[in-house]
Amino acid sequence: MRDIERSFRDAFERHADELFRHAALRLPDRDRALELTQECFLRAWGYASRGEEIREMRPFLFRTLRHLIIDEYRKAKSFSLDEMTETDEGEQRDALLSDGSNPLEEAMNRFDGSRALRAIRELPDLYREVLAMRYVDDFSIGEIASCIGQSENVVSVRLHRGLKMLHALLESE
């Protein structure tokens, strides 16, 4: 049991800040973000102490946090219609240019990233989620896909749309 305890303490020290940061980006209320972060660790502990195996701690914690955030949105319908409906407009994601660059990402360079935090908060949560995971939490597309349970293509499309919306928001300021 001690080994589990140890790895938990370690996981807490390593990941508490970034999990809290992610929750704080997704939720309007800092206190709530605190509570969900704590709940995330407690759940993970419950899971592990029951003998279940956690192969990779960081993705597991993010997945757990994600479920908590989803529950949060489901409960509080007063939040805007960020619901998980997504229409498929037959949109293809921007093909990466053959040199691997992404023109939409490049286009963001026009803006001051340190001011973009506020704008990100205005995006629908669907896009906020993938943008945060990609550009703040440093997950790869594949990792995001497995965390949110969607295909890599869906993740790419969402990122693309999220960036477009962010771009539009920043441009209109």
Partner: peptide, 29 residues
Amino acid sequence: MNKFFSQLKKETHGIQLTSKEREVMRHAL
């Protein structure tokens, strides 16, 4: 690296637990 995203990341790194908050959370765990 993309300037925008690195600025963004730097900005978000200001969001973290205060040491009191950490303490309380650690205590609960």
